Simulated scan of single mutants.
Amino acid sequence: MLKEMRGVSYDGLDRSIDVAISRLRKKLGDNPSEPFRIKTVRNRGYLFSLSGWE
Rank of each mutant, 00 (worst) to 15 (best):
S9C: 05
E4M: 07
S16Y: 02
L2W: 12
A20N: 03
D18T: 04
S33W: 03
G7A: 14
R6S: 04
I38L: 13
L13C: 01
I38K: 01
K39T: 01
Y10T: 03
G45R: 13
S22A: 13
M5R: 12
V8E: 12
D11V: 06
S16N: 09
F36T: 12
W53V: 05
E34Q: 10
M1A: 13
F36V: 12
L24Y: 01
L28Y: 04
V19W: 03
M1G: 10
D11E: 13
I17H: 15
L24K: 01
L24F: 04
K3G: 05
V8R: 10
P32E: 10
L47N: 02
G45A: 09
I21L: 11
L2C: 05
K26Q: 14
D30P: 02
R25Y: 05
T40Q: 13
R25D: 02
I21D: 00
I21G: 03
L13W: 07
S22D: 04
L13P: 00
R37P: 01
N43G: 01
S33L: 10
T40E: 09
V41E: 12
I38E: 00
M5G: 00
S49R: 12
M5C: 03
G7E: 14
S51E: 11
G52E: 07
K27L: 14
F48E: 02
L47S: 11
G7D: 12
S51L: 07
E54F: 06
G12E: 13
L47P: 00
M5H: 05
P35A: 14
D18E: 15
E34M: 06
E4S: 07
P32D: 09
I38M: 01
K3S: 15
M1K: 07
L2I: 10
Y46N: 04
L47V: 04
L13V: 05
F36S: 09
V8W: 08
I38N: 01
G29Q: 02
W53L: 15
E4F: 06
E54A: 07
M5T: 02
R37S: 00
R44F: 12
E34C: 12
E34R: 10
E34F: 15
